[in-house]
Amino acid sequence: MSTKDGSSRKRKQDSAQTQKADDRDSDVNSLSPMIASFKSFQLELDIRHDKYERLVKLSRDITIESKRTIFLLHRVISPSVPSAEEVLAESDVKLDGVRQKIKQIAEELLGEDLYQFHKAFTPGIQEFVEAVSFQHYIKHRTLISLEDINARLVFLQEGKSEATGPSADPQGMQELAFQVTPTDYLLGVADLTGELMRMCISSVGNGDIDTPYQLSQFLREIHDGFSYIGNTGPYEVSKKLHTLRQSLGKVEDACYTLRVRGSEIPKHMLADVFASRAVPIDPDEGVA
């Protein structure tokens, strides 16, 4: 019994000494400047990761609402819609809601480097550019500029009363601006060409034979602009040039068919004819 009691006491003493040693090491580690630095790095990374995830969610919401706006705008050329002005007014309301989401992105990026988080929200911004430019074309038959888009993304928010400068407001309001990057603008405009191609097909099906010729000229001008960029621009831009050529080719094919065989094909069948015709395009065409 005495031997067992002695062994038990020895194990307890060893365990107590080990625990004390661990406590001392823990105290030393917690006071170590290196450990403190790594903990601060961990906290900073966690904050950035959470911010990135919030931006991804906002981008997803912007993408969904922008797509809904584009679907709505396609109703403008539908003969069943009594008033195009009502559709455009509804699209203004939807785009204003999207702008509020972009305002939240601007708030998240306040004091941050935009390009550190750019990948998180660029899909939504591209979709917003596509929706805004599509609405602008329907209204004015022109391409909206990057400056005009950025001018719509200037917001007012509550600021500190001691703020000074041109962005300060006497009532404590400050300007908060979000700037769409040139790359996001170009990618959004490239996606716009697909919507214009669908608009062309729908217009022909509704008996409108003037819109395809307008769209053909407009798409040709956009294509020429992208051709100047070529491979000197971002990779994503040159990659979407193939889709742009496809859209332009289908619209030009529609115009050709209208000019040559328009009188032979009934108007209600023209849309089906154009939709079924595919334009084979070499994806490497024009790439230097």
Score class of each variant (00 low, 15 high):
Ser2Met: 11
Ser2Arg: 15
Ser2Gln: 15
Lys4Ile: 10
Ser8Lys: 15
Arg9Cys: 07
Lys10Tyr: 11
Arg11Gln: 08
Gln13Leu: 08
Ala16Thr: 14
Lys20Met: 07
Ser30Ile: 02
Ser30Gln: 08
Leu31Thr: 04
Lys39Tyr: 03
Phe41Met: 11
Gln42Asp: 14
Leu43Phe: 01
Asp46Ile: 00
Ile47Glu: 13
Ser59His: 03
Thr63Tyr: 06
Ser66Asp: 06
Lys67Phe: 08
Thr69Gln: 04
Leu72Phe: 07
Pro79Met: 02
Ser80Ala: 06
Val81Trp: 01
Asp92Thr: 09
Asp96Ser: 12
Gly97Ile: 08
Ile102Glu: 06
Glu107Asn: 03
Glu107Ala: 13
Leu109Met: 10
Leu110Gln: 15
Gly111Lys: 03
Gly111Phe: 05
Glu112Ala: 12
Tyr115Ile: 04
Lys119Cys: 00
His136Asp: 13
Tyr137Ala: 02
Tyr137Asn: 01
Ile138Asn: 03
Arg141His: 12
Thr142Ala: 09
Leu143Arg: 05
Ile144Trp: 01
Ser145Arg: 13
Asn150Trp: 06
Arg152Gly: 06
Lys160Trp: 05
Ser161Tyr: 06
Ser161Thr: 12
Glu162Val: 05
Gly165Val: 10
Pro166Ala: 15
Gln171Lys: 09
Gly172Met: 04
Gln174Met: 13
Gln174Trp: 02
Leu176Asp: 00
Leu186Thr: 03
Ala190Val: 08
Met197Arg: 11
Arg198Glu: 09
Arg198Lys: 14
Cys200Ala: 14
Cys200Gln: 04
Ser203Ile: 11
Gly207Trp: 10
Pro212Gly: 06
Tyr213Gly: 02
Leu215Arg: 00
Phe226Lys: 00
Tyr228Gln: 11
Asn231Tyr: 08
Thr232Val: 08
Lys239Ser: 13
Lys240Asn: 07
Ser247Cys: 04
Lys250Ser: 05
Tyr256Ala: 02
Leu258Arg: 12
Val260Pro: 00
Met269Pro: 03
Met269His: 11
Leu270Gly: 02
Asp272Thr: 11
Arg277Asp: 09
